[in-house]
Design a protein around this nucleic acid. Structure first.
Length: 473
DNA sequence: TTTTGAGTTGTTCGA
DNA sequence: GTCGAACAACTCAAA
């Protein structure tokens, strides 16, 4: 038995700074930092391929900042942790809380085991500004509408704690007790498509801060407007760092608050963190959020089965350039600009009438920021079956949206090089371009770039009809 | 208890 | 070209 040693169990908090559990574990003596790849048996919730790539590099970076003393394991923590405690004789373990329903269940079981075996454990809030259960309506039930949730619930509650520094001293355990190598986790794909993703991102804690600082200093002054233009740099792109915990929301919140944004830019940016909180709250109170329509009448929605267009959508071959640009950005970079996420998602659900579950799964696999709460809540929002009142008529038109938010076509041309020489006037509706213009641009619709898979006008009306059929329920 | 009115980011049509 | 109105019905916080 060794009272001076403690384990910090890294989960979705892959950082050294502002890490309450790491801080507490390192405080009293020797620290054994552990990471356990634990999604091997979680079935449908297996981490997506892009997230695994991100995780691989995150772990490499984290291990480096721990002088190579990060203990790596793979398997079920319910077995591995008690075993590790036994082997090491350590009697104290700390972690930051996670909120996926299966993790909540699992952690509860683990606590029982630890209690039974007389191991001291401590858990912390390391990844939310307001934990679920704190922000509730006066009647004690959870909010179902964002604005009151955020304005009254969040902003009316205690303000988020200030970030803490990294542990002043980290006396790291030198023995590695049969640790695996990070490479042994086989997080990288066999075919090396991950190289494309890696070239876009610097995946480590320091880079996360650089990115955030850069955004806050040079881009946030125009966040409110600029965030709508995917060709511009007015979004922060911190979502993957937030998901994996290289950044904490507290660090972001307080860093943003300290800036002069003007014209509501800071408030708008903070509100996006509020949406993240809202998603987590929904997931906590509706654990089946990833599957069940929050509005049950949507269970009767006439989704088209076996649509041949799902794969066109995935590959960025719908014939609608703005949609295709987004889907290709996703595939090539593991990321998609938020406005384009809404447009591509709206297209899948409202024009192709394909169930949001299919979109959810594709995004889950492709996004480096894939997050159960955000992904589930956002797809429900787009589909209109989510928590907020969603006007049935909110159906994005990829042509209109392209003209409005990518006026110079820079974003679209970047991802659809085969349309690069098409004039702006026709860039978002090449099928309407005169033959001579297409020829001049080297485009053959149906050959070098697909014809539109569906007709916007017709499918819009079909969707409106389908949505109004739900009224009765 | 009842009532009021707002609700993330849209589109189309007609003046 | 710009502008405002219309496009369901419903939930739910809050007065």
């Amino acid at each position: 038995m060794n009272k001076t040693k403690a384990i910090h169990w890294f989960r979705q908090d892959l950082r050294i700074r502002d890490n309450p559990s790491l801080y507490a574990a390192a405080e009293k003596g020797i620290l054994l930092p552990v990471y356990i790849l634990d999604d091997f048996n979680s079935g449908k919730l297996k981490m997506g391929a892009a997230s695994r790539v991100w995780l691989h590099h995150s772990l490499k970076a984290l291990n480096k900042s721990l002088d190579g003393h990060l203990l790596i394991l793979m398997g079920d923590p319910l077995h591995l942790i008690p075993e590790l405690l036994k082997i090491t004789g350590i009697k104290r373990i700390c972690w930051n809380r996670c909120y996926e329903p299966w993790r909540i269940q699992r952690d509860k079981q683990l606590k029982e085991i630890l209690r039974y075996s007389g191991v001291e454990f401590q858990t912390f809030n390391g990844s939310l500004l307001w934990e679920p259960g704190v922000v509730l309506k006066q009647d004690g039930t959870p909010y179902r509408v964002f604005t009151p949730f955020y304005r009254k619930g969040c902003l009316g509650a205690e303000s988020p704690r200030l970030p803490i520094v990294k542990p002043p001293k980290m006396a790291l355990e030198q023995e590695l007790y049969g640790s695996m190598k990070i490479d042994d986790l086989k997080l990288l794909p066999v075919k090396n498509w991950d190289l494309k993703i890696e070239s876009q991102w610097n995946i480590c804690e320091d880079a996360a801060h650089d990115l955030l600082d850069c955004f806050l200093i040079s881009e946030m002054w125009n966040y409110r407007e600029g965030r709508n233009y995917p060709a511009q740099k007015h979004v922060s792109r911190i979502s993957p760092y937030l998901h994996h915990g290289q950044l904490s929301p507290n660090q972001v919140w307080h860093a943003a608050l300290a800036k002069e944004g003007g014209r509501g830019n800071v408030e708008n940016f903070l509100q996006e963190l509020g949406w993240r909180e809202f998603s987590y709250s929904l997931l906590y109170h509706f654990p089946d959020l990833m599957r069940s329509n929050l509005q049950r009448k949507f269970d009767a929605f006439p989704w088209s089965n076996e649509s041949p267009f799902l794969s066109s959508w995935k590959r960025g071959l719908t014939g609608y350039p703005f949609v295709d640009a987004g889907m290709r950005e996703l595939w090539q970079t593991g990321y998609m600009h938020n406005r384009v996420r809404m447009i591509t998602a709206s297209f899948l659900v409202k024009n192709l009438l394909i169930h949001w579950h299919h979109g959810r799964d594709w995004f889950w696999d492709c996004l480096v920021d894939a997050d159960l709460a955000n992904n589930s809540a956002s797809w429900q929002w787009v589909a209109g079956c989510g928590a907020d009142a969603a006007p049935y008529f909110r159906i994005f038109n990829p042509v209109t949206q392209g003209i409005k938010y990518d006026p110079e076509g820079k974003y679209t041309r970047n991802f659809i090089p085969e349309l690069a020489r098409l004039p702006n006037q026709y860039l978002f509706r090449p099928w309407e371009a005169p033959k001579t213009i297409l020829t001049d641009a080297g485009i053959l619709i149906g050959k070098t770039y697909p014809s539109p898979v569906v007709d916007m006008k017709k499918t819009r009306n079909d969707a409106l009809k389908a949505y109004s059929s739900l009224k009765v329920a």
